[in-house]
Nucleic acid binder design. Structure first.
Lengths: 226, 226
DNA sequence: TTATGTGAAAGCGTTCACAGCC
DNA sequence: GGCTGTGAACGCTTTCACATAA
């Protein structure tokens, strides 16, 4: 009886909505209102919560604090997770400064990069370490979650080292598919890809005119059948 | 006969894999090898491609350049999409400098932010404009795709203005659920959420010991049933 | 013989609709 | 009366397995 992946991916959304409600002093909420705040269907919200247990009261709704605690416990945000960031280019640096990590139960315990220009520089009180010292940094900090923000070419090699050192969760911003052993979780965030998905739909919006036959279009555009 | 969403989300992955293959001088590839490069099952790859047309050769495989052109056309990367970035904090600035947008057929045509400290500053030759001038900037640049990297509190108000100005695709980095009218596509990237999903699985990995009854745990941890 | 393209089957995820409980 | 919790129905996605074509 395990929780479906799709549900797990929504738990953080519920958590944030609940935090926002709590901040506004609301202490009880119905599935309908919470669903609206989270941007999902109310049946879906109830089904999702039912995988965790029966935390609501029929005829009333959910106690905001209590539900928040329960989901938080499930997601693992009751303890603070140490996180290591690898690669401190533009994106890595922005991530290191990003408050959304800290506010959600994560602490950046180390940042590593091979560039001499960056090593020693401090961000939020933590100094950037040489990538060459990764084998010392990971065991020392005990991080099992890593954020990969290296160039695509370097990502796999770094991932291999991280996994060898005991990292079992990787958030990958590098534009490459990582190969990792079973038991290691990877989530990929590809920013260019997100825009491409939007562009696909954009293109369709202009295309209410029926499309030209592919063959004709092809020749005009220079794509040649092999 | 339209293409399933799940397939659309994978097309950019295939595109990147094909580009990488082309760069390495490979001109023909089988579904098995391409699937491996893209990190998916080969049956899935074939089914996905079958929605676009019959671009392979039985007994041989796919012509890399030709397939790349076909997927590119489908995704809309044959033309260059103008994109506007709203919010140039750490994350917005990193996105403005991010090469992955430009290399995939997008061009940052405007950047807006309300902060006087940022207005006028140039990134990649484009100057940051005052958010107050949004009503002038969007029509002038013709952007229909926007990247939102504002604080959560500001996101909805900015989104409303963008939509009113004709933006129909939003990539939302703000930690909030956006309400938009039908016909507008929103993709949300929530970095904290991604880490939380990883943390969920991390927590399970340590939990091979059967869990304590929820009630007991609750009292110890201070969560109180209403 | 080899590898694509695709119906059919299996597996997931979402939504419906209502029984159960406050 | 009102709202949760959930089996059942539905729809989408993935995988299988093989006919089809080079």
């Amino acid at each position: 009886m395990s929780i479906p992946e799709a549900t797990i991916a929504r738990l953080p959304v519920y958590l944030r909505a609940l935090t926002s409600l709590a901040d506004r002093g609301i202490d009880t909420i119905s599935s309908g209102s919470l669903a609206e705040a989270a941007g999902v269907n109310s049946a879906q919200l109830r089904k999702d919560l039912s995988y965790l247990g029966s935390y609501g009261t029929r005829g009333v709704g959910y106690d905001v604090e209590y539900l928040r605690f329960q989901i938080g416990r499930e997601v693992g945000s009751t303890n603070e997770w140490p996180v290591i960031i690898v690669g401190l280019g533009n994106l890595g640096t922005a991530l290191a400064k990003y408050s959304g990590f800290t506010s959600r139960g994560f602490r950046i315990v180390a940042m590593v990069d091979p560039s001499p220009a960056l090593i020693g520089k401090r961000i939020n009180g933590v100094a950037i370490t040489d990538l060459a010292d990764l084998e010392e940094v990971v065991p020392r900090t005990g991080a099992v979650i890593a954020v990969l923000a290296t160039p695509a070419e370097a990502a796999q090699a770094v991932a291999d080292r991280l996994v060898y050192l005991g990292v079992t969760s990787i958030l990958n911003f590098a534009a490459t598919v990582l190969a990792v052993p079973d038991g290691v979780n990877v989530r990929k965030v590809d920013l260019g890809q997100e825009l491409q998905i939007l562009a696909y739909h954009e293109q369709r919006k202009s295309d209410d005119v029926p499309r030209e036959p592919a063959g004709t279009f092809l020749i005009e555009q220079g794509g040649s059948r092999p």
